[in-house]
């Protein structure tokens, strides 16, 4: 009998530490499926971040390098320069990529570093217990914005993906979401494209994935999916912001 569904080979078959209703697991699976489909499991090095996905080196069954907070693109650069023929990806959250690691992601993108970045935006710091993130929405309550994010004091929710898309270096920049099956399918397509472009040597590719954090948002998993759709999509529209293949 033909096997039509199963556990991806690039994902270790174990339960994760992620909370109920968190979409990290879905995104992990999408990446693992893409790696399997491209048949690059033995040629891939993943860079884990600091944040909720800090332990993702336990979950992906590929060579993994755990970076310091925000520096995954720099670590990935070091790995990729040593192994230009291997596939290197970073998996980074919003605190990691959009706050402490802004310099590293901007310059990796600007160099057109031939790596793939999966950027998880859930509008909050999860691992440290629900603090305000650079992507936290206006008025959103967190442990460090108990009265709601105040734009005057804390600035605006940062749109990293739009920012990076104006650089000349990147090959592909897109924002996707995983709040329903249709968007999950689209997300996988974008992630696959971002990996394929690296294989083809086209340069830096980043996919921002809008993700849920019901635990720190203080709502139920199903309400989390709704909150993402209703609150995050207006601030973070889903789109392809740069694609050099479109131009070609």
């Amino acid at each position: 009998m033909e096997k039509i569904a199963g556990y991806p080979e690039s994902l270790d078959n174990q339960s994760t530490h992620y909370c109920p209703g968190c979409t990290h697991g879905i995104i992990h699976r999408l990446i693992a499926e893409v790696i399997d489909e491209l048949e690059i499991r033995e040629e891939t090095i993943g860079i884990a971040p600091v944040g909720c996905a800090v332990l993702c080196y336990e979950y992906f069954d590929v060579d993994m390098h755990e970076a310091s907070h925000g520096r995954a693109p720099a670590v990935a650069t070091g790995v990729k320069r040593v192994h230009p023929d291997k596939t290197v990806f970073t998996y980074q959250g919003d605190g990691d990529l959009a706050s402490i690691g802004t310099a590293e992601i901007v310059h990796a993108a600007n160099r057109g570093e031939n790596i793939t970045t999966i950027f998880i935006n859930n509008a909050i710091y999860g691992m440290t217990g629900g603090q305000m993130a650079p992507t936290t929405l206006e008025g959103q309550k967190t442990t460090t914005s108990p009265y709601g994010r105040n734009i005057k004091d804390s600035g605006n929710p940062i749109k990293m993906t739009e920012m990076l898309a104006v650089l000349d270096g990147p090959a592909y920049i897109a924002r996707v979401s995983v709040h329903n099956p249709k968007e999950i399918r689209k997300a996988k397509k974008a992630i696959k494209k971002a990996f394929r472009m690296q294989l083809e040597g086209k340069g830096f590719a980043l996919v921002e994935v809008l993700s849920t954090c019901p635990t720190n948002w203080g709502i139920s998993p199903t309400d989390g999916l709704k909150w993402l759709e209703e609150m995050m999509l207006p601030q973070y529209p889903l789109d392809v912001f740069k694609d050099i293949e479109e131009v070609e």
Binding site: H65, A67, R71, G78, V79, R81
Partner: peptide, 8 residues
């Protein structure tokens, strides 16, 4: 951190 990556 690039050194960290390359050394690894």
């Amino acid at each position: 951190n690039m050194v960290y990556g390359a050394a690894g």
